[in-house]
Every structure is written in C-alpha cells, then in structure tokens.
C-alpha cells in the first residue's frame, strides 16, 4: 500500500517533468526558431550558428554571455531592443529557451 502510493507520487512527478521540460536538443531546435522567426532577433544580431546577419545590435559572437545575462536582456530589452518579457512579446518559457540557445551557440 505504502509502496504503491510512493510509486504513484513518483509517477506524477516524473510525468510532470516530462511535460514541462524540453530536452536540450529540443531547446536548441526551438531556440533557433524563436531567434530567427518568432522573435526576430536575427534581424538585429549576427549569430553565426543561426546564420543571421542583423547589424543593429552587437554581434552576439563577439560578446561574452551567460544564459542569465541573455535572459535579463531579452526580458527587459535595452535601447532599441524590445523588452520581450515585460511587454509580453514572448512567454517566459520562450525566453528561457532562446536564452539557452544563444548562450550555447554564441561565439561557437
């Protein structure tokens, strides 16, 4: 009885996790799509990995970034860069994914 209850809880935790988090590979695919198409980051930034040639903001291959610093920038924007989070242009999940993508491709 106790064990089956434990397993049941375990099952719920496990399935919730599957639903919530993408695998890293999925995040890279989805991140590229957000970068190039959904958010249009490509229009303003060079990122070799994404094949983008935008020249309004800094070339993302030339800056040092962390996933957190990208997240900050995408959430709050700066200058002409839109505040994707504050202005609800992207969802929090999309911001997490595109930040993961940029942090793992910039300069590589």
């Amino acid at each position: 009885m106790k064990i089956s209850k434990f397993l049941l809880i375990l099952f719920f935790i496990f399935s919730a996790n599957i639903q919530k988090s993408f695998s890293d590979d999925d995040k890279m695919i989805k991140g590229l799509e957000i970068f190039n198409e959904i958010a249009g980051c490509a229009g303003c930034h060079i990122l070799k990995a994404a094949g983008s040639e935008g020249n309004v903001g800094p070339n993302l291959d030339t800056v040092s970034l962390t996933e957190d610093s990208v997240k900050e920038m995408v959430t709050y924007g700066l200058g002409v860069m839109p505040a994707y989070g504050e202005e609800n242009i992207l969802t929090k999940e999309q911001i997490d994914i595109v930040s993961f993508y940029v942090a793992n491709t910039a300069g590589k």
């Binding site: 198409e37 959904i38 249009g40 229009g43 935008g54 020249n55 839109p82």
Partner: peptide, 14 residues
C-alpha cells in the same frame, strides 16, 4: 523572417 513578430519590420542594408 519575423512574420509572426511584427516587432521588427526591418531590412538589412549594410
């Protein structure tokens, strides 16, 4: 490129 994101209707010229 950004069809769904009318946020950035820009063209690249240089």
């Amino acid at each position: 490129l950004a069809a769904t994101a009318s946020v950035v209707p820009i063209n690249i010229s240089n």
